[in-house]
Design a protein around this nucleic acid. Structure first.
Length: 468
RNA sequence: GGCGGCAUAGCCAAGUGGCUAAGGCAGGAGCCUGCAAAGCUCUGAUCCCCGGUUCGAAUCCGGGUGCCGCCUCCA
């Protein structure tokens, strides 16, 4: 099955052809770890999690790296107002990030490089750029990349304008040759700076060099490309990815990646979620209210390239949709996993192979759910059908990361054991009332449960309940 | 100012030249049910506006309008 993905540099859907047969190398620009992950981080991680899952099902040997930027001005700023060390701070947020991502079902990366553990690789790349004349050192010790020396600079973002207004918006640095030049290395300004010692002046790396160096360190690639797919948020396209590409091209004489994919933003009230706007919705806060799998479902319900306008109302509507999957799963409770429906599997995979069309994939899932329910309405005891449906749901879980939980627990989240006992007692009481045709009492018990936030539904195998 | 993206039913959202424009939520009707709920069935849009290309366009081109993003750290 062909896998097509939209390359955001070439701006077209391409048939994926790995640089090395049967293998896929993926690099994702990960977070700068100075604060908790927000929904934007979640969406980015989820988009590329789907990418990894699909490629695994296409039988590729996937190696996915996602870095942690653990040295950066923002981290240093945060450090100045506390007593902890850089490592303590960044480890704290790395762990928080990993916990949050696990809660929404993001598979761990195969490689999780940290900038501070890649200093030699950065030093080496900067020295190469200096010796080849692509970089220059200022009196301050800062080292800059000379963007005019790279003839392909601008090929990633198409941002090679030199209008005066643009120039005025870039922080002026004495000695910087061109407005688009960027720092490869920042020398220490005073004793309070966090500095790394090497053959370079005492200092710390610029942001862009990290990714180029880490990719070179962890992937061997081919003569033409370092890796297959480079991923990141759309906001990284310029200047970050342009600069990464330039550094790699000029130091290693090859392109950093064959394909580039970028996820759209999460917006709130139509505006991009960001620290500066103060409209961040932290994942950990969302997880206090909503189940991780529900957040996952909601965030992948539209295609990864679109902007995603977050709304709690839409999230709650998504819950109703996931509930349908779990009601079917509940209907199959205790049935063994059988043989998957081949057409369903292919249709679902095919949707995902079309540039990760998760929206279409969910329509395929919905179709499977209603078909299965329809057949089960007619033949409630068809065991083979139930086993097949179990297998279908198992596949949905593996490919999309949805429907993986226990169906009873899904509907009983947040209900304590004491409350469960009470619910069971009331349901028993109601069943007896029903048996003696005392519908008035039965209905009043149902109303009582309703007020407790519990919905009940009578079925052939007894009364079931759900937390509303 | 430069570069880029988006505009599809009340809402969310697929769709990248061609059968009746996916799917979900909400709404309406029905089946089922003691009544409900759940489940199932049926039910809604000519795709922001104008012009063009084409036998044929939501889909391509040109011009508008509106919204968003990048150009400074950002997933």
């Amino acid at each position: 099955m062909d896998f097509r993905l939209y390359d955001s540099i070439k701006k077209e859907k391409l048939n994926f052809q790995p640089i090395i047969e049967n293998e896929v190398s993926i690099y994702i620009c990960g977070p700068t770890v100075y604060d908790d992950a927000h929904l934007g981080h979640a969406r980015s991680a989820l988009s590329f999690d789907l990418l990894k899952r699909v490629l695994i099902y296409l039988d590729y040997k996937v190696t996915l790296a996602k870095n942690f930027t653990d040295i950066d001005d923002k981290i240093i700023n945060k450090l100045s107002s506390s007593d902890i060390t850089l490592e303590e701070l960044t480890n704290f947020y790395i762990n928080r990030y990993l916990e949050d991502m696990e809660a929404i079902g993001v598979l761990r990366a195969d490689i999780e490089p940290k900038a501070t553990e890649s200093m030699e690789a950065m030093e080496s790349m900067i020295n190469t750029l200096l010796s080849k004349g692509y970089a220059y050192k200022l009196d301050s010790g800062d080292i800059y990349f000379d963007s005019t020396k790279d003839t392909k600079y601008g090929s990633i973002s198409n941002m090679v304008t030199d209008d005066s207004d643009n120039i005025s918006r870039i922080e002026s640095v004495d000695g910087k040759k061109n407005p688009k030049d960027f720092a490869l290395w920042k020398a220490c300004k005073d004793n309070e700076d966090i500095c790394f010692q090497s053959t370079l002046p005492s200092g710390r790396p610029g942001w862009h060099i990290e990714c180029s160096a880490m990719i070179d360190k962890h992937f061997s690639g081919t003569d033409d490309y370092c890796i297959d797919i480079h991923c990141g948020g759309a906001d990284l396209l310029f200047p970050h990815h342009e600069n990464e590409a330039a550094q790699t091209r000029c130091s290693l004489n090859k392109e950093i990646a064959k394909y580039w994919i970028h996820n759209g933003f999460v917006t709130i009230d139509g505006e991009k979620m960001s620290k500066s706007l103060g409209n961040s919705f932290f994942l950990k806060d969302a997880l206090k209210i909503y189940d991780g799998e529900l957040l996952r479902y909601y965030l992948i319900s539209i295609n990864y390239r679109n902007n995603f306008n977050f709304s709690e109302e839409d999230l709650i509507n998504s819950k109703k949709r996931v509930d349908k999957l779990y009601r079917l799963k509940k209907r199959l409770y205790g049935v063994k996993i059988g043989k998957i429906n081949r057409i369903f599997k292919e249709t679902l995979l095919e949707a995902m192979c079309d540039d990760l069309n998760s929206s279409k994939a969910m329509a395929v899932v919905d179709d499977m759910i209603s078909n299965t329910n329809e057949y089960l309405d007619k033949e409630p005891k068809n065991k083979a059908l139930k086993q097949e449906a179990q297998a279908n749901i198992e596949f949905i879980c593996k490919l999309l990361g949805i429907g993986c939980k226990d169906s009873i627990e899904w509907f009983q989240q947040g209900v304590g054991s004491e409350e469960k006992d009470k619910i069971d007692r009331l349901i028993n009481k109601r069943s007896e009332a029903k048996k003696s045709r005392d519908f008035e009492l039965a209905d009043s018990i149902r109303e009582e449960l309703n007020l407790m936030g519990i919905a009940i539904m009578d079925s052939a195998d007894g009364t079931k309940w759900e937390k509303i």
